[in-house]
Amino acid sequence: MTQHSNKHHPIRIDLVALLAAFTLFLSTIEYLIPKPVPFMRIGLANLPLMIALGILAPKEYALLALLKFLGQGLVTGTIFSYVALFSLGSTTASACTMYFLYRIGKRWVGMVGIGIAGAMASNVVQLALSRYILFGPGMWLIAPPFLTVGFVTAVLLGLFAQQFVNRSVWYKSKVAS
């Protein structure tokens, strides 16, 4: 489907910055959505990372993940706190999981599967960090609802991403180029 194995291909700064901006925009939207529980997250900001799988080269993808982390950290002002550790850990985990899964199994796995795998990786990393930083063994109290919510939102987000990839004119033009 896609061809971006050329190692000397220059990094498409504009495209990466646009997608990174889109993550940031979505996290602001997510922030505005009222949530019943403070620790609940939808993960809207992962949408561009999922869309980018078929478009970006490895370096570009890594740069996108880095910009997502730095941008969010700077805007929310959390970049020098524990929260940044959570964000860095979860972004790295989900970006790597999704990228490798896409590279290895894109014939068999769609956005739903990739999204779920990424969300699980991200949530497990967050739980592991919270075990040591915040909660202690009581983390196991938080884990089941946290993982359940993460799973459900990942399915929904994955369905949306798959629809987008199937229908988007913009996506097709990027994959073709």
Binding site: I13, D14, V16, A17, L18, A20, A21, F22, L24, L63, L67, L70, G71, L74, G77, T78, I79, F80, S81, Y82, V83, A84
Partner: peptide, 28 residues
């Protein structure tokens, strides 16, 4: 969390290419 808020309150700029990329991101 709030110390971090204070640290970025004067809008620090990352140096070099990464800094330019970040400003581009914010512009977008």
């Amino acid at each position: 969390l709030y110390l971090s808020q204070y640290m970025v309150s004067a809008k620090p700029k990352f140096p070099g290419a990464l800094g330019r990329l970040l400003s581009m991101q914010f512009m977008y």
